[in-house]
């Protein structure tokens, strides 16, 4: 699967952009947090698309955000 790019996203309508990012994000999160992957992905999709794209390329950033999301979920 080729990486998601800004231009690919820009060609899609706004709601579809989040969908496209979610489809990439979900499997990454599912690998680590199978039970909560749907909720964590839903939370992370509220982040700006530009940052989400960066997170898809940066496992460290993604993990940090996932941990933040988990902390909020458990609060």
């Amino acid at each position: 699967q080729e990486p998601l790019t800004v231009s690919m996203l820009a060609a899609a309508p706004l709601h579809k952009q989040k969908q496209m990012i979610g489809e990439r994000l979900y499997p990454l999160i599912y690998n680590v947090h199978t039970q909560l992957a749907g909720k964590i992905t839903g939370m992370l999709l509220e982040i700006d698309n530009s940052e989400l794209l960066f997170m898809l390329e940066s496992p460290e950033s993604l993990n940090a955000k996932v941990e933040e999301a988990l902390a909020v979920l458990h609060a």
């Binding site: 709601h15 989040k18 969908q19 979610g22 489809e23 979900y26 992905t41 839903g42 999709l45 509220e46």
Partner: peptide, 22 residues
């Protein structure tokens, strides 16, 4: 009671509804 439906859950292959009110 007041059910809090947050966060919205993402399901692969299902159209994302979390931001449909924008």
């Amino acid at each position: 009671g007041s059910s809090i439906n947050w966060p919205p859950e993402f399901h692969p292959g299902v159209p994302w509804k979390g931001l449909q009110n924008i």
